[in-house]
Simulated assay, not measured.
Amino acid sequence: MSNAAVDKISPLLPLTTEQSELVERLLAFATTHIQTDGPAVFTIYGDAGTGKSVVLAHLFNQLQTLARTHPTNPLTGTENYFLVNHPEILKVYREIAGQQPHLFKKDFQRPTSLINQINQGKRHADVLVIDEAHLLLSQADHYNNFYGTNQLTSLMATAKVIIVVFDETQVLRMKSYWTESRLEHLLASVPHTSYRLTHQFRMQASDELVSWINDFTHQRLHPLPATDGTQYDLRVFNDAELMRQAIVQRNREVGLSRIVSTSGYPSTLDGGKHFITEGRFHLPWDQYNYTNTPWAELPQTIDEVGSIYTCQGFDLNYVGLILGPPITLDEHQHLQIRLDRYTDVEAFKRRDDLTDPQKLTQIKQQLVLNSINVLMKRGVKGLYIFAHDQRLRHYLQQRH
């Protein structure tokens, strides 16, 4: 694996004063509550790129160092796990574990794997650190061998301390449908506290552009910042192939530059290639990545189109985003989400506790908007946009 992804969340990275103080607060929370019956939960809220994962990496390294080397600390000898429900990000954490003396690859697990091992009596958990907790399943998923009703509830039944990071704007699938209010309702009966990170670390963009992305993905349209006062490279393209060529050039210059897209194009998990075609532009979707290297760091993926499932949680230097057929602008310049054009069938799988048709439509639309938010915030140095919908494309170009 190249070091690009590892370096972004290494426990050797320097922290800001705020981040250092938060790590100390989290350690104190764990030390206090490990001596009680539990569970006690600490939630870190924050948008994409606000440094949540690097805080967790530092915390877990210190936690395991205490557990494995300190003779008298309350955390001495505790059995602790770091969980993430995202196979690409898990690869990065396990790579980090191989570089630190007190972190083991087995410390890093998918939630379902740990839950099932605990249920079989093979493991127990004292402290759990959960990255991307908005990806935890909130309903049974037999395909993934989870037979409970909620992964967080299952984990709370076993651990003494749980520390999670959570961003409701990164909820992407019905089976992991969460909101902050749903999370807080679940935690109401246990000792819990929270902290919110707000400073944007990933994107070298102005606050105005970050605000524009957040507004766009809540269907509040206003002009793109004409210039955002930074070196951030923001462009809107009328031709997807020209955007691809520009991204290829950026990739030659600085690396880690990729094309990504929303759903809305042929896509089936059948092992075959499925293509996105926009005029002269013609590239296949990302293929399942069987290697230990994250998708974006594989050289050949410059000739593929990434999705939320390969890019969520990762930094790219430049991202070229295709806004697919479901994202349109009506004649009154209102952003519309055409659910009938959405091709990611996994995202909208039915769940028994959500039955109100109007509410379901709203939730599905927000899941699509969340996917746009995730993809728009991948680029550290630049964001290039191509919209399938001609009216939307024209609107973005006129106001750029």
Rank of each mutant, 00 (worst) to 15 (best):
R94D: 13
R94V: 09
E95P: 05
A97N: 11
A97S: 13
A97P: 08
A97T: 14
G98K: 13
Q99S: 15
Q100S: 12
P101V: 13
H102D: 13
L103V: 12
L103K: 05
F104C: 14
K106Y: 12
K106S: 15
K106L: 11
F108G: 01
F108S: 07
Q109T: 11
Q109S: 08
P111V: 08
T112H: 02
T112A: 10
S113T: 14
I115M: 02
N116E: 11
N116Y: 00
N116H: 02
N116C: 04
Q117I: 06
K122S: 05
K122D: 07
H124R: 08
A125K: 04
A125C: 05
V127S: 03
V127L: 00
V127T: 10
L128Q: 01
L128N: 02
L128K: 02
I130P: 01
I130M: 01
I130N: 01
D131N: 02
D131C: 07
H134A: 10
L135I: 04
L135R: 13
L136F: 07
L137E: 07
L137I: 08
S138T: 15
Q139S: 15
A140D: 06
A140S: 14
A140E: 14
H142K: 15
H142Q: 14
N144G: 12
F146N: 07
T149L: 11
T149Q: 15
N150E: 08
N150P: 05
L152M: 08
S154R: 04
L155V: 04
M156I: 05
M156K: 09
M156S: 04
M156C: 09
A157T: 12
A157D: 15
T158L: 07
A159R: 02
A159V: 04
K160T: 06
K160L: 01
K160I: 05
V161W: 07
I162A: 09
I162W: 02
I163Y: 01
I163F: 00
V164M: 10
V165Y: 00
V165P: 00
F166C: 03
D167P: 06
E168R: 01
E168D: 11
E168T: 02
T169L: 06
T169P: 03
Q170Y: 07
Q170M: 09
V171G: 03
V171D: 00
V171E: 05
L172W: 02
L172Q: 12
R173D: 11
K175L: 10
K175P: 02
S176N: 09
Y177H: 14
Y177N: 13
W178R: 09
T179H: 05
T179Q: 10
T179Y: 01
T179K: 00
T179W: 01
E180I: 10
S181T: 13
L183W: 00
L183D: 02
E184Q: 13
E184M: 06
L186F: 03
L187A: 08
L187N: 05
A188P: 06
A188I: 07
A188Q: 12
S189V: 11
V190H: 09
V190R: 06
V190K: 07
V190N: 00
P191A: 06
H192I: 07
H192D: 08
T198P: 06
T198N: 13
T198V: 13
T198R: 12
H199S: 13
H199L: 09
H199G: 03
H199N: 10
H199W: 11
M203V: 02
